[in-house]
Computed example of a mutant assay.
Amino acid sequence: MTRIPAAPLILGLAGLIPFVWGALTYLSPALQDWGVSALGPRFVGPYIQVFYGAIILSFMSGVLWGFATKVEGAQAATGYVLSVIPALWAFFMTGGGPVGAATNLIFGFLGLLLLDAAFSRWGVTPAWWMSLRILLTTIVVACLAVGVLL
């Protein structure tokens, strides 16, 4: 794997804050109480994780769409079709309560990692892309698992 440049690494890690915060507020009732009083109930536990997770899957659809523009013909068409899957997954699979939504987000992020690998194999991602995506996906899945397993 290739070294991740500082800017994408720092921004990617910063993008984990809502997932980590959500997990911490699951694990600490005092932190959850503080979060509810200071930020509002939407910004703790499953609520922040599910809402933000849907946003990030949709954002990643846009990233994949951008990668699809680097190929042509049937491969481009396949890339465009694959690129909309994370956003559609987030839209259709995040209802039904916090545990079900978080479970579906876990599967969504793992599926996204497979799509990342496909685009990487096509040679349309930066050389460091999979190093970043594996790191970020591992942390996201671990954070979401806190709410699913507790």
Rank of each mutant, 00 (worst) to 15 (best):
T2K: 15
T2F: 12
R3T: 11
R3I: 12
A7Q: 05
P8N: 05
I10M: 10
I10V: 15
L11K: 11
L11N: 12
G12F: 10
G12V: 09
G12M: 01
G15H: 13
G15L: 01
W21L: 00
W21I: 07
G22T: 01
G22V: 00
A23N: 04
A23H: 13
L24Q: 10
L24N: 01
Y26V: 05
Y26T: 04
L27M: 14
P29V: 01
P29C: 00
A30I: 01
L31C: 05
L31R: 02
Q32E: 12
Q32F: 06
S37I: 04
S37A: 15
A38C: 01
L39A: 15
G40R: 00
P41M: 04
R42S: 06
V44T: 07
G45C: 10
Y47K: 03
V50L: 05
F51T: 15
A54I: 08
I56M: 09
I56F: 02
S58E: 06
F59L: 11
M60K: 08
S61K: 03
G62V: 00
V63E: 11
L64Y: 10
G66Q: 01
F67R: 06
A68Y: 14
T69Y: 13
T69W: 14
K70V: 09
E72Q: 15
G73C: 09
A74K: 14
A74P: 04
A74M: 12
Q75E: 06
A76L: 07
A77V: 15
V84L: 14
V84D: 02
P86V: 05
L88K: 13
L88T: 13
L88M: 12
F91A: 15
M93F: 14
T94C: 02
G95R: 04
G97C: 14
A101P: 00
N104E: 05
N104T: 08
F107H: 12
G108H: 04
F109Y: 10
F109I: 02
F109L: 02
G111W: 00
L112F: 02
L114D: 02
L114H: 01
L115M: 00
A117R: 03
A118Q: 09
F119Y: 05
F119G: 02
S120Q: 14
G123L: 09
T125I: 03
W128S: 13
W129L: 11
W129E: 04
S131V: 12
L132C: 09
L132N: 01
I134G: 00
I134T: 15
T138G: 15
V140M: 11
V141C: 08
A145R: 07
G147L: 09
G147W: 03
V148P: 04
V148D: 09
L149G: 02
L150E: 06
L150P: 12
L150G: 06
